[in-house]
Computed example of a mutant assay.
Amino acid sequence: MRKTILLTAFAAALALSGCKDDRTAEAPPPPQGMTDAAIGHYCGMNVLEHTGPKGQIILASRKDPVWFSSAR
């Protein structure tokens, strides 16, 4: 019984020791405003023409955000 408790405590301590993240997190970029150039990624239509929720993803590899005309 005592071995099981010690083994469980050791496994828990080992698992929790991997949770520390030493990297400094940088702030995400601010959202960009919609313009006439905002085109939906899948539909190819102007996002301003769609009603309802819209979304964007800002990728490090692209200058402009990826727009989505529906967030559902």
Rank of each mutant, 00 (worst) to 15 (best):
M1H: 13
M1V: 02
R2L: 15
K3G: 12
K3M: 15
T4P: 07
I5G: 05
L6A: 13
L6D: 04
L6M: 14
L7C: 14
T8G: 15
A9R: 04
F10R: 06
F10P: 01
F10K: 02
A11Q: 00
A12Q: 01
A13K: 06
L14V: 14
L14H: 04
A15V: 11
S17A: 06
G18N: 04
C19I: 03
K20H: 12
D21A: 01
D21Q: 10
D21W: 07
T24R: 08
E26M: 14
A27M: 15
P28C: 02
P28R: 01
P29V: 05
P29H: 07
P30H: 04
P31Q: 09
P31A: 10
Q32H: 07
Q32C: 02
T35H: 01
D36V: 01
D36Q: 03
A37V: 06
A37T: 11
A38D: 04
I39E: 00
I39F: 08
G40P: 01
G40I: 02
C43L: 06
C43Y: 02
C43V: 01
G44P: 08
G44Y: 14
M45G: 08
N46G: 13
N46V: 11
V47I: 09
V47L: 02
V47G: 03
H50Q: 04
H50M: 11
T51K: 15
T51N: 12
T51Q: 12
G52L: 05
P53N: 00
K54E: 02
K54S: 07
K54N: 01
K54V: 03
G55P: 06
Q56S: 07
Q56F: 03
Q56N: 10
I57M: 04
I58V: 05
I58Y: 00
R62G: 05
R62H: 07
D64P: 10
D64N: 13
D64K: 15
V66F: 00
V66Q: 00
W67S: 04
F68K: 03
S70R: 11
S70C: 13
A71H: 08
A71V: 10
R72Q: 10
